[in-house]
Design a protein around this nucleic acid. Structure first.
Length: 211
DNA sequence: GTCCAGAAGC
DNA sequence: GCTTCTGGAC
């Protein structure tokens, strides 16, 4: 796999992101670490539009980790009920708020919180602070496994290393663009005709175009 | 009823 | 690192 192709993809993706980035309340500038964390915590397995529906109300009611700690689990369930997973999520949030004064800023430490894995930890720190971390979910995995095909590794550890190398200094712009690209263009049924990568994407070149 | 996606458990 | 869990989506 040529590094030229990686460079091309990175450049094209950043360019695409400038025009196509989706706007969500949690992507507004100057969101606190807590505010971004809450969004990413809810965004796993929950459509963004759904999260957008309760996000403002949640932050109004629990603006900081300190105020979240004052809430009862029942109050939490009430507010996040439309999202689903409300009991699991309320229990975890309650535990987090009652254990921590501040959210950790190291990914490994964030991952020690209940219901917080690699995706939520890296996404939170990248989007809130610009930390140059690889953000890896199913969308991202689908994108890379198509564009780079055989060069895309199988194990999660290798995939994180692969992704890490591509993340530029503006990690926030890159990772946001990557998630949006996976959701809007390189979706399960990909829109290859309108894709900036179709000249070099291995999936398109080797199988879809001739199909 | 089956599939999915991220986290947790082993 | 593989399997199980959760519970929403289809």
């Amino acid at each position: 796999m040529s590094s030229e192709m990686e460079h091309r993809f990175r450049t094209n993706l950043l360019e695409w992101g400038k025009e196509n980035r989706r706007e969500y309340p949690w992507r507004e500038p100057d969101r606190t670490l807590y505010e971004v964390f809450i969004a990413e915590f809810f965004l796993t397995q929950t459509p963004a539009d759904n999260v957008a529906g309760v996000y403002p109300r949640f932050l109004e009611r629990f603006p900081t980790l300190e105020e979240l700690a004052e809430a009862s689990e029942h109050e939490l369930v009430e507010v996040i009920e439309p999202l689903g997973f409300q009991n699991m999520r309320a229990e975890a949030l309650k535990q987090i708020a009652s254990t921590y004064d501040h959210l950790p800023t190291e990914p490994e430490s964030l991952m020690e919180l209940p219901r917080v894995g690699r995706y939520v930890a890296n996404a939170t720190l990248c989007f809130a602070r610009g930390d140059r971390l690889p953000v890896l979910d199913r969308n991202v995995e689908r994108v890379y496994s198509r564009v780079f095909r055989d060069a895309w590794p199988e194990t999660e550890a290798d995939q994180l290393a692969f992704t890490q190398r591509l993340v530029p200094d503006d990690a926030r712009a890159y990772n946001l663009a990557l998630l949006d690209f996976g959701a809007l263009v390189c979706q399960t049924e990909p829109l290859c005709e309108q894709c900036f990568a179709n000249e070099y994407c291995v999936y398109f070149q080797k199988s879809r175009r001739s199909a």
